[in-house]
């Protein structure tokens, strides 16, 4: 497999390139100094600061969020047994968006003490809470007698998303220009929140999600045949659904909370992997994580350099980079099925 080296190359490139010029050799020296291999006198303090406090956390955050969104997408597609399922299907994204809009537009209603205590974490905290609440409502609506209907969940997810967009619309209506602008930026996503504490929170949550997802791979393969078929193959389907939803909720929730809405990765990464390596989840889940992380790091590299010293919202880039790639793969697949 060449995917691993490509991912590493993209990560190294993303570390070496940015608006702030740092020569590749310096990047190596600074990283070396960080782990005690190079004498600290040999490096420029400001370059080191840029690399360690801005670029490294950002690349790590991008890799974690990309991997999390891609795996959540793959899990949702497996759960819904549908290759066009999106990680936002269970309402996490729209719930988080509504909460974020609430904080942006009506932030003043929060008690001053809460705002001071949470500081920059008020919005992520609220967004995660909103996303989790929406997903739990969807799950609750779709569950009867301890059995969750995936089909009902799909409809409930659509309903709650519609409700959330109505709420967002209302908030947008009463928002000032500035608030509207912030809201727009939020819906286009950004990795600008990257710092070491954010990397720690997001990285930890998504690592747990990825570890849990490994155990879901084989049962999801069985589920591809149908829910009863999976049950007859010995899968505890309801338990698996609960874990899938929990993992997706955690991965998407924490990503959306800190980085806003980053579209397309969750749909495109698993789909691309499926076209290249087949639908086996034992391969699909880790490969999606790798591809999702790589894509997002690459997209962010472009986002933060192409209009430097400003930066583009990353959601624009994930669509701009993802769609052509996706279309090429679809065309290739189409060619194969029609000729074969």
């Amino acid at each position: 497999m060449t995917a691993g080296p490509i991912a590493v190359a993209v990560a190294v490139f993303a570390l070496a390139v940015g608006a702030f010029p740092i020569a590749p050799s310096q990047v190596l020296s600074i990283l070396g100094a960080g782990i005690g291999l190079v004498a600290p006198e040999a490096i420029d303090a400001q370059q080191a600061a840029v690399l360690w406090s801005i670029r490294v956390p950002r690349v790590l955050l991008g890799a974690a969020v990309g991997a999390g969104l891609a795996v959540a997408g793959a899990l949702m597609q497996g759960l819904f047994r549908n290759p066009i399922a999106d990680p936002g299907l269970i309402g996490v994204t729209s719930g988080a968006a509504l909460a974020a809009a609430f904080v942006i537009v009506l932030g003043a209603v929060f008690p001053g003490k809460l705002v001071r205590e949470l500081g920059n974490y008020l919005l992520p905290f609220a967004a995660f809470f909103g996303g989790a609440l929406a997903a739990l409502i969807v799950k609750h609506v779709a569950t009867r007698d301890g059995v969750t209907s995936v089909f009902t969940m799909l409809l409930a997810g659509i309903a709650i998303s519609a409700l959330a967009s109505a709420g967002i619309g209302l908030l947008a209506y009463i928002a000032t220009d500035t608030q509207l602008r912030l809201l727009t930026f939020w819906t286009l996503g950004s990795l600008g929140s990257a710092n070491w504490s954010v990397v720690a929170i997001v990285g930890f949550t998504i690592s747990i999600a990825l570890i849990l997802s490994v155990r879901l791979a084989a049962p999801l393969n069985a589920l591809a045949l149908g829910e009863f078929e999976a049950k007859h193959l010995g899968v505890d389907v309801q338990r698996m659904k609960n874990i899938v939803l929990l993992v997706a909720l955690a991965a998407v929730g924490v990503s959306v909370a800190f980085c806003g809405m980053i579209g397309f990765i969750g749909l495109v990464a698993p789909h691309c992997v499926r076209l290249l390596c087949g639908p086996d989840h034992r391969m699909l889940l880790p490969a999606s994580a790798l591809l999702g992380g790589t894509l997002l790091v690459a997209a962010d590299l472009v986002a933060r350099t192409v209009v430097a010293p400003a930066e583009l919202p990353i959601g624009i880039l994930t669509a701009l980079l993802g769609v052509p790639f996706f279309v090429v793969l679809l065309r290739r697949q189409h060619g194969q099925t029609t000729s074969g």
């Binding site: 591809a224 087949g278 639908p279």
Partner: peptide, 19 residues
Amino acid sequence: TMLNFAFTVREIVELGRFP
């Protein structure tokens, strides 16, 4: 059996060994 993913024949039969 409704299947939406392009598993190979062998992969499907291997699923029989899941239990």
